[in-house]
Structures are given as C-alpha cells and as structure tokens.
Simulated scan of single mutants.
Amino acid sequence: MTRSFGQAMAAFEPALPLAVAFSGGADSTALLLACARKWPQQVIAVHVHHGLQAAGDDFERHCQAVCTDLRVPLMVQKVDARHAPGQSPEAAARHARYNAIAALALAQPGPAAIQTIAIAQHADDQVETLLLALSRGAGLPGLSAMAAQWQRGGLTYCRPLLQVSSSGVRDWLKAQGATFIEDPSNVDERFTRNRIRARLLPALQACFPQFRDTFARSSRHAAQAQAVLQEVAVDDLARIGVPPEIKALQSLSQPRQANLLRHWLLSVHQATPTSAQLEELLDQLAACRTRGHQLHMKVGQGFCVRRGKVLDWYNP
C-alpha cells in the first residue's frame, strides 16, 4: 500500500554506513536529506557525472553545495555513458551509473566501508517500469519490476521509497524548503519513460486512482511466481545435469523445458535467448530423436549445439 514519505523513512533500517545515490533531483535530494538527519555521520552521497549534458558540471556543483550544507561527504565519479549501437540510451546510462556507484562505495576503507546503497526510485518509477515491461512483451522477471532490496558484489541495494508516490516525495521536500535540480532530460518525450510519465500516468490517475497500489501488487505476484520457477529450474538442472542431457530434457513438459533452458543459459553462460530463439530451440529439441540428428542454432550472442547426448552452448 502507498505510504507517506515519513512512513517509508521510519521503516527504513539499513546496515550502516550508508551511501545515497545523489543526482541532485527532487527524489534523491529528499532521500539524502532524510538519511543525513536520521543517521548523522553515517551517510555519504555518491554522484555520477554522466558526461551527456552540458549542464552536468552545474549538477555536480549543486550537489557539492547541498552536501556541504548537510555536512555529508560527497564522492563524484565521471563516466562515459554513451550508448552502443542497438543499446537504449537509458540502459547505457543506468549500467554506467550502477557500476560507478558500486565502485565508489567499495572504495571506502575499514570502518567507513559502505554496507548499503540507497536509491530514490519511487512508486511512479515502479509503475513506469512495469508499463515498459508490458510494452515489450516481458515475462515474469520483467513484470516483477524493481525489487525493494537486492545484493550484488558484497553490497546491499535498497529502494526505500518504492511505496511513496512522486507527489508524496515532492510534498515532503517542499515542506523542508530544500532546493533541487530539475533535469531537462526528464521531460524530453523522445524517451519512452518520459512519455509514460507525461501522458499515461495522469490518465491512469483519472481512471484508476489506486493504480500505484494495484500495479505494485501485480508486480509482487509476478515476483513470487518467478521465485517458484527459479526454484524449479535449479532443481531440474541439478537432476538433468550441466550441460543438460537431451533425453532427460525431452521428458519434461515444454514449459518446464523452457524454464530450465532460460536458467541454464543465463546462470552458466550469461546468455539470454529471445522468445523466437527459445521457441525454435524447443522445436529443435523435440525433433532430436535419432543419434544422427544435428542441432546448431544461434541463441543469445552464441550458439546452441548438440554434442552427443547433451545440449551445449558456445560463443565463437
């Protein structure tokens, strides 16, 4: 259920010391201000300079001024967030940002070593993420949207504001009299997420006022179902073997084969098949009934191939 900003922060009890991802925008300013008040001397701010906007240097100077006022240390990392051909600009910037934040946090030595990274994404961001996933025909991992907490590389990442609306964050911040940056890229409707924010969210608010709560509930259901599928895939792969034995694979239902193959390819080879590739692979496996039947097809960035009794994958 949607919470107020104060309720969300009262419930947030991270392992300390804590790093707050700080862009200078309204959401991260509110999160940094609240964390600095709640845990004085236990919080640092990390700012990523993406190098994508002429105003980036101004953003950095603003963040430094805010942190000086709050007596919070600021760490800044400059990155090259330009996207590669075929990669979305948003995905490239997000990947660069997370890598930089983790590097800054892990650079803290000894007793100052960061335990938790807090990120200021809120309930509206969660809805946008779900709608983007739906627009792409995503499966359960995509429909699960953003996790409130996860671990990676020895750090715990938290999104304590996922149940707070954007307006709830800004109302709290306004009451504090704090200043923040309005990033012009956030209203550029060339980006799909911004079109969703500007056009779809107001329409959803008019038609379904509780949409933040109901959409979040659907994402939680998807996440729970995905967790079950993950457990099944782990058990099936342990029983069938790595690489998977083709005859044992064929004994499973086709949905269960697909679930195991996704898990095997991602967990062992960091490969993600497209829906079309996975369907073709399942068809090829079904036809693989004789010793001489060959199988060789592109999956992800590599190839699945039959090697005797097993299905293998390689990247040439």
Results as ranks from 00 to 15, higher is better:
residue 3 R to N: 07
residue 4 S to K: 05
residue 5 F to P: 00
residue 7 Q to P: 03
residue 7 Q to R: 12
residue 11 A to Y: 08
residue 12 F to W: 15
residue 12 F to A: 06
residue 13 E to Q: 10
residue 15 A to P: 00
residue 16 L to K: 12
residue 16 L to W: 08
residue 19 A to M: 08
residue 21 A to I: 04
residue 22 F to D: 07
residue 23 S to F: 06
residue 24 G to N: 06
residue 25 G to V: 03
residue 26 A to S: 13
residue 29 T to Y: 01
residue 29 T to K: 08
residue 29 T to L: 05
residue 32 L to G: 05
residue 32 L to D: 03
residue 36 A to H: 05
residue 36 A to R: 02
residue 37 R to T: 13
residue 38 K to H: 11
residue 38 K to N: 10
residue 40 P to H: 11
residue 44 I to P: 00
residue 48 V to F: 08
residue 51 G to V: 05
residue 51 G to L: 08
residue 52 L to V: 09
residue 57 D to L: 14
residue 57 D to G: 13
residue 63 C to R: 02
residue 65 A to G: 11
residue 70 L to Y: 07
residue 72 V to P: 00
residue 73 P to M: 04
residue 73 P to R: 05
residue 76 V to Y: 05
residue 78 K to H: 13
residue 83 H to S: 10
residue 84 A to H: 12
residue 85 P to R: 13
residue 87 Q to N: 04
residue 88 S to D: 12
residue 90 E to P: 01
residue 94 R to N: 13
residue 96 A to Y: 08
residue 100 A to F: 03
residue 102 A to P: 03
residue 106 L to I: 07
residue 108 Q to V: 11
residue 109 P to Y: 06
residue 112 A to V: 01
residue 115 Q to Y: 03
residue 117 I to W: 00
residue 119 I to G: 00
residue 120 A to Y: 05
residue 121 Q to V: 05
residue 122 H to Q: 12
residue 123 A to W: 00
residue 123 A to I: 07
residue 124 D to Q: 09
residue 126 Q to C: 04
residue 127 V to G: 01
residue 129 T to K: 02
residue 131 L to H: 05
residue 134 L to D: 03
residue 137 G to Q: 08
residue 142 G to M: 08
residue 145 A to S: 13
residue 145 A to C: 11
residue 146 M to W: 00
residue 149 Q to C: 13
residue 149 Q to D: 09
residue 152 R to P: 00
residue 152 R to Y: 11
residue 153 G to S: 12
residue 158 C to I: 08
residue 160 P to A: 09
residue 160 P to M: 07
residue 162 L to G: 01
residue 164 V to A: 01
residue 169 V to F: 04
residue 171 D to Q: 11
residue 172 W to E: 02
residue 173 L to Q: 01
residue 174 K to I: 07
residue 175 A to I: 10
residue 176 Q to K: 14
residue 178 A to S: 12
residue 178 A to T: 07
residue 179 T to F: 01
residue 183 D to N: 14
residue 186 N to T: 15
residue 186 N to F: 10
residue 189 E to H: 11
residue 192 T to I: 08
residue 198 A to N: 10
residue 200 L to A: 12
residue 211 F to L: 04
residue 211 F to D: 03
residue 216 A to P: 02
residue 218 S to A: 15
residue 221 H to L: 15
residue 227 A to W: 00
residue 230 Q to T: 15
residue 232 V to W: 12
residue 233 A to Q: 04
residue 234 V to S: 04
residue 236 D to F: 02
residue 238 A to Q: 14
residue 241 G to P: 09
residue 242 V to T: 15
residue 243 P to K: 02
residue 245 E to P: 09
residue 247 K to C: 09
residue 250 Q to L: 14
residue 251 S to Y: 09
residue 254 Q to L: 15
residue 256 R to Q: 11
residue 256 R to D: 07
residue 259 N to T: 09
residue 264 W to F: 10
residue 264 W to D: 02
residue 269 H to K: 07
residue 270 Q to F: 15
residue 271 A to V: 09
residue 274 T to V: 08
residue 275 S to V: 13
residue 279 E to D: 13
residue 280 E to Q: 15
residue 281 L to Q: 07
residue 281 L to H: 05
residue 282 L to P: 00
residue 287 A to R: 15
residue 290 T to K: 12
residue 292 G to Q: 10
residue 294 Q to W: 13
residue 296 H to K: 11
residue 296 H to R: 15
residue 297 M to H: 05
residue 301 Q to I: 11
residue 304 C to P: 06
residue 304 C to A: 15
residue 308 G to N: 07
residue 310 V to D: 02
residue 310 V to M: 04
residue 312 D to F: 10
residue 314 Y to Q: 14
residue 316 P to H: 12
